[in-house]
Design a protein around this nucleic acid. Structure first.
Lengths: 220, 220
DNA sequence: GTCTATAGCATGATAGAC
DNA sequence: GTCTATCATGCTATAGAC
């Protein structure tokens, strides 16, 4: 709705006419700050996340941080944007089977492997998503994040040539939503209980998603 | 493990020999502060949650808050404890069917109705859980919260007489875990996408849980 | 048990030299 | 584009009267 009001602060800088990050050196620094913010967030959580810690974690002076970002808020939203952009790089294990049910199983297992390697990152991402949802004018970012995931995984449910089909694309997206629901729930529960009985949860999720997929295909 | 180190600060006060909240009036105030903290958290989120806002939201002076709680941390953990204690009061729609699969369906629908009525509370609870997990010495609280839910729902999967059976109790708990995974994931996705296509997700979750339950019963 | 007042400090953000 | 120095504010927490 009134989205543009704040979205401007997401990219540009406060300096009229100037554009921090336009030069090569500048954009490298900008990227380092974003990376530092993510690291600090992963280690300490939202509540302890201060601009000073971010600067330290990025190896940058506090003032430099404010040269690249209007304020803390726009930096945090930039971190979330960055996570979205890097998503496809993280999960590059594309399933090779042509059977959609096998693809779903491979996909979920691959996601879960990645999630386990990057526990803190996953929690950080959830914290950032909630932060965006509570930040007036940034709710759309959270939605975009989810849609990006749904899109990405939805495509991978079927083999590339099948994915062109409109109906299969629709089904793929629906399946992706269910996969993401399960993964998010698993992340929270596994993180809280700290047990590895989560592997049973993963297998159950695979089965459930396959059943769901089969049902959607039958009804189409 | 080293759980007792901080758990003491969860209940008592800092005043040696004294016990804030021992009198009737005192415990009412304590409860009001906890309620105010939850309200403030639901409205503004973790990042904006200050002791001042909590005090205002509770209709209490800032100093009064510190009379009842050692510090902000112990207050926040007390809020999470309170949420656990109130859980059974919130979901009092006990399914009446004797068929476990029907009970699961009724349970999930009832949970989801409640979740929809209390969106912000659910997000607040997730934020608190993550907070506890990041707070040294309070991780056990997050685990206890999950276990309380698993216990509570696990019991409701079978009718009261069946629930005594050890094997059914085990199965009930496993099913409850899967239900919670789905609900948590649904909360996040529904909150982020703000669509009501979540109802499809709920139906899919019911089906998946029923399939899972059936499989566990067959293998037992 | 609740109040007013305030200490003591960390925070986000800016000014201005280089 | 990065630095040092600093501001103004709001924070958690405490002191002490009532």
């Amino acid at each position: 709705m009134n989205e543009p009001r704040r979205s401007s602060s997401l990219h540009g800088g406060p300096h009229p006419g100037k554009t921090p990050g336009a030069t090569r050196k500048g954009s490298e620094t900008r990227a380092r700050i974003i990376k530092g913010a993510l690291e600090a967030l992963e280690n300490g959580g939202m509540e302890a996340l201060t601009t000073r810690k971010i600067a330290a974690s990025a190896g940058v002076r506090l003032a430099t941080l404010h040269y690249y970002f209007d304020n803390k808020e726009s930096l945090l939203l930039a971190v979330l944007e960055d996570l979205i952009a890097d998503m496809d790089l993280a999960y590059r294990e594309i399933p090779h089977s042509s059977n959609p049910e096998e693809r779903v199983a491979a996909l979920i297992r691959s996601m879960w492997r990645y999630v386990q390697r990057t526990r803190n990152k996953q929690i950080a991402q959830i914290e950032l998503t909630i932060y965006a949802l509570r930040t007036q004018g940034a709710e759309w970012l959270a939605a975009r994040q989810y849609n990006a995931y749904i899109d990405f995984y939805g495509r991978l449910v079927f083999s590339p040539d099948e994915a062109e089909n409109a109906e299969k694309s629709r089904i793929g997206r629906a399946v992706a939503r269910q996969m993401l629901i399960g993964i998010d729930g698993l992340i929270l529960q596994n993180y809280a209980l700290r047990d590895d009985a989560a592997s049973e949860g993963v297998e159950a999720l695979i089965l459930a998603t396959q059943v769901y997929l089969r049902r959607l295909l039958a009804n189409s």
